[in-house]
């Protein structure tokens, strides 16, 4: 299995879960100390859904349709749990990782796209 692909689904699944989580008033306040502006909330929500789909696209490209869905669900489970744990024990890290993961996930998407998902 391709390491770049694995990296891509991990980062993009994290972006999806973290953005969706932080778009909720409760968690946004927990991390940033203020209520989210409507614009930010929208932005986080859209990013969350977008990267959720991006993750699915990675999974289907890497594992075909049927197995791809299974990998997608499993990866999201892992990342939902990881994000929830970070939110409880390392709140600041959630946003730091989110800013780091967005460009990394996007970059790996571009790399995978240009290489046509071939592992060699």
């Amino acid at each position: 299995m391709d390491l770049l692909l694995l990296f891509a689904i991990l980062t993009s699944a994290y972006v999806a879960m973290a953005a969706l989580g932080l778009s909720m008033d409760k968690h946004f306040e927990q991390v940033f100390g203020t209520e989210p502006k409507a614009f930010y909330q929208r932005l986080l929500q859209s990013a969350g859904w977008l990267y959720l789909l991006l993750t699915l696209w990675f999974c289907i490209q890497g594992w075909q349709l049927a197995i791809g869905f299974v990998v997608w669900f499993g990866t999201l489970t892992l990342m939902q749990g990881s994000f929830a744990l970070l939110l409880t024990y390392q709140q600041r890290l959630t946003s730091v990782l989110l800013w780091a993961a967005v460009p990394l996930a996007t970059l790996s998407a571009v790399l995978l796209w240009t290489s046509g998902f071939k592992s060699d």
């Binding site: 299974v70 990998v71 499993g74």
Partner: peptide, 16 residues
């Protein structure tokens, strides 16, 4: 059908 990554995910889900 699970490869190594998916197998880990299955294990994590089972443990959960």
């Amino acid at each position: 059908f699970a490869d190594s990554w998916l197998r880990w995910l299955y294990l994590v889900s089972g443990l959960l």
